[in-house]
Simulated scan of single mutants.
Amino acid sequence: MRADARAKRAQIIAAAMEQYRTRPASAVTMEGIASDAGVGIATVYRHFPSRAKLREACAIGFIDLFDEFLASTIAAFDAAPEEQWEQFVWRLVDYGVGMLVAELAAEIPAATDVEAAAARERFFAQVSELLEKAAAHGLVDPDLTPAELAAELIVVTRPMDAQFTELFPDVRGRLVRHLLAAWRCAPAV
């Protein structure tokens, strides 16, 4: 792929990730993504012939963003478990874990794209390792799976319409704090 084509593809993914992160799914359109990316709609479809392919690319982009952060969280975890766990959860929330709905839900068949499937497996393996560490410190139930963690965060953090956000501007933060409290249990012995 030519350098200019790679750059346009990256612009499209960045615009789509931002839309999936900040807007209800019903408000995300290929036309809106094209506009935000500064490209024509035909360029979007040339790179991503379907919404599913674009969402898959966004999921890979999200995972790539988190690889280094997740590794450093795991490495530093035992020195400050509660702080590291909460930073990890809030970073997931801030970056828009909701964009991973189609890619992370356990019930959805594995991605057809080999790269997406490998990224998903790598991400889940690292999150599993982090969950084991968190469970050892009583921060989560030992039976909490990466898919359940993602699903619960997705439900409480998905973007809301503007009117609801205006009425309840702090609801997302309150719900995440409720989740953090609900996940706690006695440390494993």
Rank of each mutant, 00 (worst) to 15 (best):
V114W: 13
I12E: 11
V114M: 13
I12W: 13
A151C: 00
L175N: 02
C185D: 09
V127D: 08
A105S: 02
L92T: 01
C185Y: 08
P49L: 08
M99P: 00
Y45R: 15
I41H: 08
A16W: 01
I41L: 15
A5G: 01
A110S: 10
T43V: 13
A117W: 11
T43L: 11
A118C: 11
R91D: 02
K133Y: 14
S72L: 09
R9T: 02
A111K: 12
A136T: 03
M30W: 04
E121V: 08
D141S: 15
S72M: 06
V155Q: 08
F88E: 00
I13A: 04
T157M: 09
P109G: 04
C58P: 05
V189Y: 09
R120W: 03
I60Q: 12
L65C: 08
R9V: 02
V39P: 13
V89K: 06
R122M: 14
E68S: 10
A57E: 11
G38N: 13
I33A: 01
A186P: 01
S26Y: 08
L104S: 04
I74W: 07
G40W: 08
T157H: 06
A42I: 09
G40A: 11
L179K: 04
K53T: 12
W85T: 00
V127R: 05
V189L: 15
T112E: 14
E121L: 07
W90K: 06
A110F: 05
P109D: 01
L65I: 01
D113K: 10
V114Q: 12
A134S: 04
R172Y: 01
E103Q: 13
V101E: 11
E18Y: 06
E129T: 02
Q11H: 14
A15Q: 06
S50A: 15
D113S: 14
D36P: 00
F66W: 12
I41K: 10
E115Q: 15
E148C: 04
V127W: 09
G138E: 14
A14S: 07
G38K: 13
W85H: 03
R2I: 03
S128A: 06
R122S: 15
L139I: 04
S26T: 06
A37K: 10
L153R: 05
A80D: 13
T157A: 09
L149T: 12
R46E: 12
A150G: 04
L175T: 03
K133Q: 15
A136K: 13
I13E: 05
I63P: 06
R172H: 02
A42E: 15
L65P: 00
A136L: 10
A80C: 08
G61E: 05
E132T: 09
L167V: 06
G40H: 12
E31Q: 14
